[in-house]
Structures are given as C-alpha cells and as structure tokens.
C-alpha cells in the first residue's frame, strides 16, 4: 500500500486527537473526583447515584424529625416527673389530714397548700415545648387548662405524628385526657384536687381517706405515661442510630458508583501522558524524513 505524506499527517493528527481527548477526560475526572460528569458517561450508574443522593437527603430530614421527637418527649418526661412529685406531696398532705387528730388551723393550712399544688398542676398541664402546648393534641397554639375550670376542660384528642422513614409515622404526643383524665370524670386529677380541698373544708374524714386511693391511682397513671414516654424516647434513639448507620452505608455505596479511584486515575493519566509523548516524538521524527534530505 502506498504511503503518502498526507496520510502520515492525517494519522498523526488523528492519534494526537484521540490521546488528547483521553487525557482531557482523565484530567477532568481527577480534578472533580467524580466519575460521572454527565448522564451519558454511565446511564445506569447515574440513576444509582441520584437515588443514593436522594436517600441521604431524606435521611437528614428523618434525623431532624427524630431529634425533634426526642426533644418533645424529653420535655414531656420532665414535666411528668414534676407531676409525680406534686402528687407525692399531695399524698403526704392528705395522709396527714386523714389523721383525725389534726386541728382546724392545720387543716386550713393543708387546704391552702393543696390549692397551691393544684395551681402547680395546672401549670404542668399547660407546659410547652418550642412554644407549642404538649398536652393539647393538635391545637398546640391554645392553652388547654384554665385554672378555674381545669377539671372540666376538654383537650384536643389529636396526636402529633412524625415520619422516621418513608410511610412510617411515630406518635409523639400524649393527650391531656391520657395524662390527667377525661374532663368531668371521677378519676380526673384536677377534680381530685378540687374534691380534696372541698373535703378539707367540710372536714369529711371518710371522704378524705377515700381520696387516698384515688391519689394512688393518679400516681399510677402518671407512672404509666412516664413508661410510655420512655419507650417512645428509646424508639427515637434507635431511629437516630439506625439513620447514622444508614448514612455510612449509603455514602459508601454512593462513593463506589460516583467517585473516582484516585490511584487508578493517576496511573491512567500517566499512561496517557506517556503515549502522547511517544506519539509526538515519533511523529516529529518521521515527518521530517524525506528523500529531499538525501538528494544533492
């Protein structure tokens, strides 16, 4: 086959073009650290990369949800502890008053303290987290308990839910009715305070002794709710740690699809550089030789 000088040139140019394209590609990969810079680089891989990115972003939100839920429940936990102490104090006072040897003055003092404890309980019932009332269901901007009518106040029965993974919601809040009893019911805690205050005023010894059982029942209910709160806090802790683990594995998976293996890329780039150098020097040598050099 005849070889002409134009052929040699075309060949040289074509090979240089190919080498330079390869080098540019590897250079790009090295400087961005990304294997895929546009969908055509790896049509299947880009789908995976997008999926992992989305899941990582969603997990951030679930983590924030878990933290909020945990915070809400921590607040619930501490106010319930307070409620517990209040009822314990009430128990002590009522025990004292049930003792028949108490004088009317002491009984009056006990009654006043009971009323104070009632106000404290109302404050507990109106506790907030982040500006939202935690015992009023979904009507979180409305104060649930009014000091005068606490025993009969209706609280909202809605529940505050948070998502912790796609299509999974966890109930966070406790309703006022769950903690303090149904409005107007016999075992309503505020009604209990009202009754005891009244009994002290009337000096009704039998009724006061009867109330002691109701106080124990109230304390049991608070403890039950504490346990529920604790369980839910554990749930959110588990969610947080699960999301932490998932984040690591998702990031690893994403990296394997999207990131460049630096060592590999550097070796390839060096290889391309060598090839380019060889083709340039050979091209220069060959192009210069012709018969002209040898004919006088």
């Amino acid at each position: 086959m005849r070889i002409t000088s134009v052929m040699k040139n075309t060949q040289l140019l074509r090979n240089l073009r190919n080498n330079n394209t390869e080098m540019l590609d590897w250079q790009n990969k090295l400087s961005t650290g990304q294997k895929i810079s546009k969908p055509s680089d790896d049509p299947v891989g880009v789908g995976y990369q997008m999926r992992y990115t989305t899941e990582l972003a969603r997990n951030e939100q679930y983590l924030a949800n878990a933290k909020t839920g945990y915070g809400w429940l921590s607040q619930t936990d501490s106010v319930l502890q307070q409620a517990n102490s209040i009822l314990q104090r009430l128990n002590t006072l009522t025990n004292q008053a049930a003792n028949g040897t108490v004088t009317p003055e002491v009984r009056e003092q006990i009654r006043l303290e009971v009323l104070q404890l009632r106000e404290q309980m109302v404050t507990v019932g109106n506790s907030t987290y982040d500006g939202r009332h935690i015992f009023n269901g979904q009507m979180t901007d409305v104060r649930p308990y009014n000091s005068d009518t606490a025993a009969d106040d209706v609280t909202d029965s809605g529940v505050y839910y948070l998502s912790v993974s796609p299509s999974v919601q966890v109930a966070v809040s406790l309703t006022g009715a769950q903690v303090f009893g149904e409005p107007g019911a016999d075992d309503n805690i505020f009604k209990l305070f009202d009754d005891i205050a009244q009994q002290l005023e009337d000096d009704d010894q039998d009724a006061i002794s009867g109330s002691l059982d109701k106080i124990m029942a109230g304390i049991d209910k608070i403890n039950l709710n504490l346990a529920e709160t604790g369980a839910r806090m554990n749930r959110f802790e588990l969610v947080e740690s699960r999301i932490g683990d998932e984040k690591v594995s998702l990031t690893t998976l994403r990296s394997s699809v999207a990131d460049v293996d630096m060592a590999d890329a550097i070796v390839q780039l060096q290889l391309q550089q060598n090839v380019l150098q060889a083709s340039l020097s050979m091209g220069a040598k060959i192009s210069q030789m012709s018969l002209l050099d040898y004919i006088r």
Partner: peptide, 12 residues
Amino acid sequence: QSVSGVSIDEEL
C-alpha cells in the same frame, strides 16, 4: 490518500 495522494519520495 493511499491511491491518489502525492508521495514526495515517489515524485522525487
């Protein structure tokens, strides 16, 4: 090019 191209060596 192989068929129609000018080879300087050949022409010389």
